[in-house]
């Protein structure tokens, strides 16, 4: 499954790529791609436990980048 998010408030592409690496370690997440310039995040996931995966993504973003605003689109 592919989840789309809008992610605003990241400082730089470097922060974005380190966040990418962190998010990829969440179980059920196959691939993460953050586009810093477009403020978009695409997450490829397994088809099960979507709710739980989304919860974990939100939690991790909040921990790692407290200033970032994440919204599902």
């Amino acid at each position: 499954m592919e989840l789309k998010f809008k992610i605003e408030g990241l400082d730089c592409p470097n922060c974005a790529s380190s966040l990418e690496r962190e998010l990829a370690t969440i179980s059920g997440v196959k691939n993460v791609s953050i586009n810093f310039m477009n403020s978009k995040m695409l997450v490829e996931t397994e088809n099960e436990n979507i709710e739980e995966i989304i919860e974990n993504i939100k939690k991790l973003v909040k921990d790692e980048e407290p200033d970032a605003i994440l919204t599902e689109i």
């Binding site: 400082d11 730089c12 592409p13 470097n14 922060c15 790529s17 586009n35 810093f36 310039m37």
Partner: peptide
Amino acid sequence: PCALVISIPL
């Protein structure tokens, strides 16, 4: 590294 990284996606 930020200074290094920003100009490429830009």
